[in-house]
């Protein structure tokens, strides 16, 4: 299997007033085509920062000090902006934790999905409309026509997340980066979204980088698991290896915590 994404020696520094904080140090991971890599770790371990760094989405006060991010062999950190913008949303897409916050409250769902379509594909508004409705169908939204005209605040968390998913899949990306997409949802909704995600992954054929602090999810969906702790990647193994024979002490800590509360 070809390697889709490869991160080597990534170092990210945050410049706060007076202090420089190293958020991620010497991170490394790789994802193959059609593979699901779960990036797990406790809050503050640097998972989100790493994920954002892949397409250089970090806030202004953060900088990537060193490292390389190779996507199909190309180092994304060295691309100039127009090139990078062609990849964002197109080949690499994101879904985030609280969909309602990540959708612009002033524009309809339809408008925002169509924006994603027309950005990367040469389609007219009419064509984009059709595509958008079809996408909403794919994410199992029952009344796509109506939802297209709705605003984010009018929909539930689960619906918003589906809509966001539809938006991210608009250009059939090769890599989907999901940053704790179900953490803010109810348990039943969470299960449904996860199932949907995995189904779409199979049918559309993309790789998934799934970030979570919840190891039980990892057990369910991961091909491989990567554990981060305090900004460093401490273990990167196949799913079976992680759960049966963890090597790093932090991995063991995490696992035992989950076992104790009966979640694994």
């Amino acid at each position: 299997m070809k390697t889709l994404l490869e991160i080597n020696n990534l170092k990210v520094i945050f410049h706060l007033s007076g202090q420089d904080i190293v958020a991620v140090e010497d991170a490394h991971l790789s994802i193959a085509e059609n593979e699901t890599l779960v990036l797990a770790g406790e809050s503050g371990s640097g998972k989100t920062v790493t994920a954002l760094a892949i397409t250089r989405l970090l806030p202004k006060n953060a900088s990537i000090a060193s490292g390389e991010v190779r996507f199909f062999g190309q180092d994304l950190l060295k691309l100039d902006m127009p090139e990078l913008e062609k990849i964002r949303g197109n080949k690499i897409a994101y879904i985030f934790q609280e969909p309602a916050s990540f959708l612009n409250p002033l524009y309809t769902i339809g408008n925002q999905i169509m924006e994603a379509i027309m950005l990367h594909q040469a389609k007219t508004r009419a064509q984009a409309l059709v595509v958008a409705e079809e996408l909403l169908n794919q994410v199992q939204i029952k009344d796509p026509r109506r939802v297209m005209l709705d605003y984010p605040h009018q929909l539930s968390g689960g619906m918003n997340q589906r809509a966001f998913l539809a938006m991210s899949l608009a250009c059939k990306p090769k890599l989907m980066i999901a940053d704790e997409p179900t953490t803010a949802l109810d348990v039943t909704v969470e299960a449904a979204i996860l199932e949907l995600l995995m189904k779409l992954k199979q049918s559309l054929g993309f790789s998934l980088l799934f970030i979570t602090h919840n190891l039980s999810i990892a057990k369910r969906i991961a091909d491989r698991v990567c554990i981060m702790h305090r900004g460093k990647v401490v273990e990167e193994e196949s799913r079976e290896a992680i759960f049966s024979a963890p090597r790093h002490f932090h991995t063991k800590e995490l696992l035992s915590a989950y076992e104790k509360i009966g979640k694994i």
Binding site: L52, L57, M81, E85, R88, A116
Partner: peptide, 23 residues
């Protein structure tokens, strides 16, 4: 957050500023 999401979609910075932030 939606500004980050807009950038993640691949929107060029000026569109992000005027279509999303300014509005």
């Amino acid at each position: 957050p939606y500004i980050y999401a807009a950038r993640a979609k691949g929107l060029p910075e000026n569109k992000v500023l005027y279509k999303h932030a300014l509005r």
